[in-house]
Every structure is written in structure tokens, then in C-alpha cells.
Design a protein around this nucleic acid. Sequence first.
DNA 1: GGGTGCATGTAATGGGTTACATGATTCT
DNA 2: AGAATCATGTAACCCATTACATGCACCC
Lengths: 192, 192
Amino acid sequence: MEVLLGLLTIGPMSGYDLGQAIRTSVGFFWNESYGQIYPNLRNLAAEGLVTAKTERQKGKPDRHIYTITKKGRERLAAWLAVAPQPEIPRNELLLKLFFGAQVPAEILIGYVEAMVDRERVLVQKFIQTSKAVSAQQQFPDTPYWLLTARFGQLELEAHLRWGEETLAELRKIAKKQQKPAESGKRKSHAGK
Amino acid sequence: MEVLLGLLTIGPMSGYDLGQAIRTSVGFFWNESYGQIYPNLRNLAAEGLVTAKTERQKGKPDRHIYTITKKGRERLAAWLAVAPQPEIPRNELLLKLFFGAQVPAEILIGYVEAMVDRERVLVQKFIQTSKAVSAQQQFPDTPYWLLTARFGQLELEAHLRWGEETLAELRKIAKKQQKPAESGKRKSHAGK
DNA sequence: GGGTGCATGTAATGGGTTACATGATTCT
DNA sequence: AGAATCATGTAACCCATTACATGCACCC
């Protein structure tokens, strides 16, 4: 809802454009599907927070270009003035790790490795785009964009550090699981 | 759904107990409301993944104690063996920061300060409970619990570092906003 | 006397994703 | 030839929170 208003302060856009813009700008901490975007734009228009202009196109459906209104800017500012309440985002990887004792450690190792691989390339991207943004011409928005990017970078670096620590620990556990010996009786079906 | 199965591997519990257990163990990365827990327990029982025993109580409603079955353990293990897909958790604070140019910087400073204050006490809690857990008797689950706690700790520390950086930056911006001068013509309504 | 905790549950409501439908153009 | 991209939109569905309802016991 408000992402749409926010991005429209940059310039007029269609619903499709907004989808793209979301993915390439706020995408790493905020996502919105088209099933959400299109109906929301209608509502915003009905409330007079945006105006729509239709562009005819051959072959393709009409493009609806939305422009934010003064009322829309006020609504955005009002929303920005409401303190964000702390959220507890769900983390499926952590949940699976929490119950990890129920399953061979190799499985968990795979999950953590996948995360590390994925996020390692992401950090690089963050650093690159941050550099690009600070190099180019400065807009009033620029410092804010850099702050959010910095958040992503620091969080990812923390994840990577955790990932390395965790992999070391999990590999220790995996080794113990392979040689069943040590403590006497066990109902294990491993061994041999 | 699966959190319930997972926690029931520790021991039989009622729906209420599970709510408590969730908040005090996985609560920092996974939450489940009672409106979710009670219906889910029914479904689990209907599927034969848990069994229920009713305890009469005076004054209070009957307590339903749930115990995980062999089938339930298998279901849990099957779920654990499915790789978690990467999620993009929404972060309202970051979204508001991203559009921060639309609003006086003092407002944003308040948000970040609130976050820093909140999370500073949380890190301490993490460190304390981690110590307590490693000091007490070791269960097969213990190392896994420590790993998830470590994640929380590292992430929070990253947030705090970001918070300090961000506050410094925002305060610079706030100062500039107070003295309008410097660059010539502006359509600002501040000043005087 | 009033708030909090124990203890269960249902219903309304909201938020969001996914799948579907359409159809031309462009790339591989 | 077939996949992907542009471009819109709707409907089904799922998941989750919140509010409501009940009622005793305990503490301040």
C-alpha cells in the first residue's frame, strides 16, 4: 500500500513498473506481489491519493500510469510519522536448526552452506550498488537509500560469520554421529 | 504446525504450555498465536500425529495434554529434511527510512533510538541465557539451541552497530534541515 | 474491587501468495 | 519451436492475528 505511494514520489509509474521498482530497490526487505499491487492501486485511485492516466498500446494491454497527488503525499507523510512496531520475522532455517537433533547433522550442514553461498554474493552486490549510488548525482533520497543498504550489508555479514561458526560446530557433531562407539548402549541403527 | 510437533519431542504439553514454550524458546524468530495453536493441535490429533489426554480441573477448563506419536516424529523428521526456502522478511523500519526524505529527520531518529534501546537489552538476555544453557546439564538438543541463540546475538549486534552509524548520519541531516541557508533558492517553507 | 494469570476455544477479518487467463513480441 | 518478457487483472486459497466468550483464583 504505502510502498506504492512512496515509490510514486520518485515519479509516475504503472503497476508493472512498480513491481520492478520494488524488487530492485526495497526488494531485500519488502516484497509485494502483483496480486497485491493492482488492486491496491485501484483503491488508492478511488481514495484520490493517486491519479491514473491510460496509455493505449498495440498488442499489449493498456498501460495505466499512476501519479501521486498532494493528498497522497500527505497520507504518506502521515504513515511515516507513525512509529513502526517491532516485528518478529519468522526464520524457517533457525526453526529447523532448533530441532536439529532429530535429524542427521549433514542435512543441516547443507542448509547452512546454501545460505552462506546465497548471501555471500548478496553482500558483494550490496557493496557494489552502494558505491554506485554514492558515486552518482546526489538526490535528497540518496542518504536514506544508503542507510538501508548499509543495514542489509551489516546483517548479511553477521549471517556469514554465524554461518562459518555454525558449520564448524555442525561438522563436529556430524563426526561424532558417524562413530557410534564411546558411550555403551544406544538404540542407534547407525554403525557398521 | 511443525513447531508444535518439535516442542512436543521435549515432552507432553497442553496448548497453553506450547504457547508459553514458543515464546520463551523460539519466540525471537518464530511466533504462533493461540488462534493458531488450538485448531492446529486438533488437526494433528485427527491425523494421528499426536494423542490427547484430558485432565479434569476445578474452576478452569479441562487441560488437554498432547503427546507426540511415532507417526508424528516421522512427520517432523520429514519436514526437517525439506530444505528451507529463503524468505524476505518485511522490515517496516527500513521501509520508513527508505522514504525518510519525505519527513523531518528527528522522527526517524526516534525510531532508530527506540530500536537500539529495545535490542540492547535483548543482546544481554541472549548472552545470559546462552551461558545458563551451556552451564546446565547437556541434552542432545543443547548445541542446537546454542546455535540459534548465537544467531540472535550476532544479528542484534549488527543491528546495534548499524543503529549507531545511522543515528550519527541522521543527526547530521537533522542539523542541515534546521539551518535552511547555504544553497540559494529553495521552495522550502522552513527557515526564519 | 480490579487487574493479571490460567485455560480453552471460535469467528471475523485481514493480508498475502499463487494460479489462471490473455496475447503480442522478442530472444534463444 | 519454445521460452521469456511485457502488461494487466481476477479468483481461490491459505495463513495468521485479533477479538470475543467464559470463569475461577490470586494478588494489590
